[in-house]
Amino acid sequence: MAIEVRIPTILRSYTDGEKAVAGSGGTLAELFADLDASHPGIRERLVDGGELRRFINVYLNDEDVRFLDGIATSLKDGDSVTILPAVAGGMR
């Protein structure tokens, strides 16, 4: 089952510069484990102690997974996952 994962610039060293990669998994945790198999080391940058790292935001179809089920959020075929660094607002 294919899920598109958009990778931020800072993590593209793990994906040979690819902006988006495909992964699979029934949950976000499984997806990250699958990603780590093809792109070793990337999981460690996203997850710490079984939780998302503080300055990492992950969105499932544009919705922040912290308001879904976090790392246990269920995924289905065709979903789009976006990983982004947490930043201060632009023009505040």
Partner: peptide
């Protein structure tokens, strides 16, 4: 952007 120096 450095992921360890993010901002919340």
């Amino acid at each position: 952007r450095n992921l360890d120096e993010g901002f919340v």
